[in-house]
């Protein structure tokens, strides 16, 4: 049986499940919204959620898509007891996640969030080109490094793009950094990078050693030239299948293995000089936007991968 951990709204999970159904595979999807109860019987663990009951030992493969197991436990109402019980359960959950990673699996909760700064540093160690990172929290330092020859961009360090305020939503897009910005003397640490001139962007889906790469032409449109998540619906940018040079694939493969990730979305830029510059990896990123335009049918490839029985 294939176990999938996801959230309610994830369409890609549903599409992979359609393939599992078609291929006649048994599967169970746990959403982070589901309240899960766990019972222990010696060496066996029994999971209960929404009228579904299954044994941990029946899980043959595991897909960590996103989210977490929302464990419900009976509390006593006595604080010290409950706190102790919570601590105990935390350790048990850790053990369960560990055992899930022991099975044939795609991704793991331990790598759900990657640290952008660490990843970029690891990429450099793998001889992959990256932009230069600077972190500043005051104006003085910023002005010393920033020179007028290059252009710079600022982006969020955490990768979280959307913040909801009381009556508006701020989309934290990557934006170009210009001289006329009013900069206070000190500010919260911000990531500044030298801007890479791009010929086109690459969105690469990595699946157990295979690369599904898409080139995105967005330069034409000024509106989207900094970050293509600034969608322009009217005229979609061209998105076409692309084959990475072997040398780049090999380096990325090393990086993914180093990070202990067997799946994820990688963003790169190809410069007018045909340099490949690494931007980031998102282990739980959307792949539908790569799968559809390139007809890669990644949903089916994932279903096939999960169906593999050893």
């Amino acid at each position: 049986m294939i176990l999938i951990l996801s959230d309610e709204r994830d369409l890609s999970t549903t599409q992979v499940i359609e393939w599992l159904e078609f291929l006649n595979r048994k599967w169970i999807r746990i959403n982070q919204e589901d309240k899960v109860k766990i019972e222990f019987c010696g060496k066996e663990i029994i999971f209960k959620l929404n009228n579904i009951v299954f044994n941990f030992s029946d899980v043959t493969s595991f897909w960590y898509r996103r989210g977490y197991i929302n464990l419900q436990n009976d509390t006593t109402g006595i604080r010290p007891f409950d706190e102790f019980q919570n601590e105990e359960l935390k350790i048990i959950m850790q053990f369960i996640y560990y055992k899930l990673d022991d099975k044939h699996h795609l991704n793991s909760i331990k790598n759900a969030n990657v640290n952008k700064l660490i990843v970029t540093s690891m990429a450099r160690d793998c001889n992959i080109n990256t932009p230069e990172d600077y972190i500043f929290s005051n104006k003085e330092g910023l002005e010393q490094v920033i020179n007028s020859k290059n252009t710079y961009i600022t982006k969020s360090i955490s990768g979280d793009s959307i913040r909801e305020f009381e009556d508006f939503i701020a989309f934290n897009y990557t934006s170009e950094f210009t001289n006329d910005w009013l900069i206070p003397d000190s500010f919260s640490p911000s990531l500044v990078q030298n801007q890479i001139i791009k010929k086109y962007e690459l969105r690469i889906f990595y699946l157990a050693g295979e690369f599904y790469t898409m080139a995105i032409f967005s330069q034409k449109d000024n509106q989207t030239s900094v970050d293509f998540r600034n969608y322009n619906n009217h005229k979609p940018n061209r998105r076409v299948p692309y084959k990475l040079p072997l040398e780049i694939e090999e380096k990325l493969d090393v990086l993914m293995k180093k990070m202990d990730l067997n799946s994820g979305s990688i963003d790169m830029i190809v410069t007018p000089e045909n340099e490949y510059v690494f931007l980031e990896i998102n282990p739980v990123g959307q792949f539908g936007m790569t799968s559809f335009p390139c007809n890669y049918n990644i949903e089916k490839r994932i279903a096939d991968y999960l169906s593999y029985e050893n």
Binding site: Q15, Y242, L244, P245, C294, N295, Y296
Partner: peptide
């Protein structure tokens, strides 16, 4: 050559 042809397979579940 890096801009490969699209695979025109038709696959549906």
């Amino acid at each position: 050559d890096l801009f490969i042809d699209i695979d025109t397979n038709f696959e549906i579940a």
